[in-house]
Amino acid sequence: MPVVLVHEGPTLTQERYEETVRRLTGGRGPLEKPADWPVEGLLVHTAGQGPNGFRVVDVWESEEAARRFGEKLLPVLQDVGITEQPNLYPAHTFVSA
């Protein structure tokens, strides 16, 4: 069952997001396709400035895949100064083009 990961908060800025991406990819550049992620299972990723700050939304094929990503992500978040934890919940509906 797909799960949704939503990450936002005062310490998640565009600059810190970009630094996190740089570290997750080993400096290869922006994340443009699921194969760019350090683990398998990503279905959708989007990030952008919202009315309450910078927000990242992912859809993962399973909670297990999201947790594997979290094992790589959380140490990087701590290192770049992002203190909010992502929210993870089961997707009720998932439609892909």
Rank of each mutant, 00 (worst) to 15 (best):
M1E: 14
P2M: 13
V3M: 04
V4N: 10
L5I: 14
L5W: 13
H7Y: 14
E8P: 03
P10E: 15
T13W: 09
Q14P: 00
Q14Y: 03
E15L: 03
R16P: 02
R16F: 08
R16K: 15
Y17L: 04
E18L: 15
T20G: 00
T20L: 08
V21I: 15
R22S: 13
R22L: 08
R23Y: 06
R23D: 08
R23C: 05
L24A: 08
T25Q: 14
T25K: 04
G26R: 03
R28K: 15
R28N: 05
R28W: 10
G29Y: 12
E32T: 11
A35G: 11
A35K: 05
D36F: 08
D36E: 08
P38M: 02
E40M: 11
E40N: 04
G41L: 07
L42R: 12
L42Y: 08
L43G: 02
V44K: 02
V44D: 10
H45R: 12
G48K: 09
Q49A: 12
Q49D: 08
N52R: 13
R55C: 00
V56P: 06
V57N: 03
D58H: 04
D58M: 02
D58A: 08
V59W: 12
V59L: 05
S62W: 05
S62L: 06
E63C: 05
E63I: 07
E64T: 11
R67Y: 11
R67C: 04
R68A: 12
R68V: 06
G70K: 10
G70W: 12
E71W: 09
K72P: 03
L73P: 02
L73S: 04
L73I: 01
L73E: 08
L73V: 07
L74H: 14
V76P: 00
L77F: 14
L77V: 14
Q78D: 09
Q78E: 15
Q78S: 14
Q78L: 14
V80Y: 02
G81I: 00
G81V: 07
G81L: 05
I82W: 00
I82G: 00
I82N: 00
E84I: 11
Q85E: 05
P86F: 07
N87R: 13
N87E: 10
L88C: 02
Y89E: 07
P90D: 08
P90Q: 02
P90E: 06
H92E: 06
H92P: 03
F94L: 13
S96I: 13
S96H: 15
S96D: 15
